[in-house]
Amino acid sequence: MEYLYDGTFDGLLTCLYEHVYTEKADDIRVLEENVQLSLGRQMQVKTDLTKSEKVAKAIEKKISPAALRRAYRAYLTAEKGKEMDVLRYVFLGFKLGRDVDRLHGSETVRRIDVLNHKVSWEADRILGILRFSVIEGPDGKDVLYAAIHPNCDLIQSIMPHFLNRFRQDPFIIHDVGREKAGFAKDDEWVMRPLPRDFSPQYTVDEQQYRELWRNYFRTAAIDQRRNPKLQKQFIPTRYWQYLTEMG
């Protein structure tokens, strides 16, 4: 049976629940709008917070809290087939208990390792290469704004890092592709929809500081050590669009 769910993590956990109590899933995909279900082959799974809660608790108890986190991170990637990867991992975990994460030789476990690595790698990179611009807030005070286009869904993983950092300035991190943004002020933040064509007003100093940074970046490279291959290895060209200094 092919499961169609709403794309949320609770939805995915509900699928795992149905996998046990109704017909087995052999594929899980996100339900797209205006698509006709083909009955008998496909099934729409309605997200049910009681069921997802049960599954989450079971994972924490029968496997480990770390396993739940790992499943969640795997879900945050944009990889095809991640839902079935999570399913296989969780059910292998139900069989083996907490030892499942020691089975580095298993394809199922390795796959979850790989997906986890994708998220943490990208989150780590974005922490560094995301660029804030100073824009003018509604009250005339500075607000920091950054646009990102990550593969994985990771606003929530990077917000705390900047909350720790910016005590004075409110800030916004905008996932342009997913059309949502984290808005932070003081010690708190919320996630809100924000359309992709949001275009802020930059302050006068902004251009000058960008110019200074570009200048710094160019000057800092050591000509005798030029190594563009190495540079690309660290920072795939896909991410260059973020970097004020590469332009």
Partner: peptide, 12 residues
């Protein structure tokens, strides 16, 4: 945290 990489591949 690396914020960028110079043309010589060093982390800035």
């Amino acid at each position: 945290i690396c914020h960028t990489w110079t043309a010589d591949g060093r982390c800035v």
